[in-house]
Design a protein around this nucleic acid. Sequence first.
DNA 1: TATAAAACCATAAAATACCATAATTTAATT
DNA 2: AATTAAATTATGGTATTTTATGGTTTTATA
Lengths: 152, 152
Amino acid sequence: MSLFLSSYENRLDTKGRISVPASFRSSVASENFSGVVLYRSFTNNCIEGLSMSRMEKLASATDQMGVFDTELDDLSAMLFADARPLQFDVTGRIVIPEDLLLHAGIKDTAVFVGRGNSFQIWNPTAFKEIQNKSLGNLRKLRPNLKIKSDDN
Amino acid sequence: MSLFLSSYENRLDTKGRISVPASFRSSVASENFSGVVLYRSFTNNCIEGLSMSRMEKLASATDQMGVFDTELDDLSAMLFADARPLQFDVTGRIVIPEDLLLHAGIKDTAVFVGRGNSFQIWNPTAFKEIQNKSLGNLRKLRPNLKIKSDDN
DNA sequence: TATAAAACCATAAAATACCATAATTTAATT
DNA sequence: AATTAAATTATGGTATTTTATGGTTTTATA
């Protein structure tokens, strides 16, 4: 799976259909499931999205943590219960379920936001706000993303 | 991936296409993705550029940090949301998106500036200015770049 | 049978591939 | 070292494809 990068603003039609950006589609093109998995973000008013293969990796990651980890139980309960697998139609569109749209405050336009191994779907104005906040934080804190030297 | 070195001034055509310097192209020639990734610098009025493989390393670095790391959230949010994967055409050109050009104040000419594992794209005059400032700082501060002995 | 969901068809705009040429750099030859 | 030849690189314009988006028809379902 290649990365989800960049941001794309697309429109929902009267039937709730919206084009998944072509670049995001090609990110999952090699997978068995021709579509994406969406769920309501735990932390933001937005929709989280990932590939089915990544969902499967999360499943096996939770396996590693043992059966009696209650915290993780809550997490996986939420995650897997809330997750919606949505298949692309012929032209690469999906219809996002009502409750997800509600959670993100999306009406007729949405922004697909790349996050590397995952992506998010936002109400355009809500996204601009949080993006400005993030930029502000960045300029103040200058966090450092370190890459081990042997990684190149 | 070999290093991005030296500086090259190239012109944009009417459609916004610009040749990536041949030397930079050969720096990423061995990679799967035949192109580069660009994003607006957080700190300067210029465009940052790197290889896709470097982007992927950043992605896995953020993965290591766990799902609920908020500081890194800001960084990766900005970075991945803003990053544009741009594929070379047959002759080695890319088209730099409007908003990136605007951010860097680039009109019809741009300088590709090598930065080792990454590079930058500048408005030519803006670059000359900042370059002079950098040289001044260097002469005053004489910082020391240390190399571990086993690194060669 | 009514209603929702999926499949199908159409199109304008944008992105990309294609072709051609000028300029520059590198290599070869005298 | 100077000159010529070859190859590479940068640049310009056109044609084709892809993409996003809208609408209609068919199929499944309650």
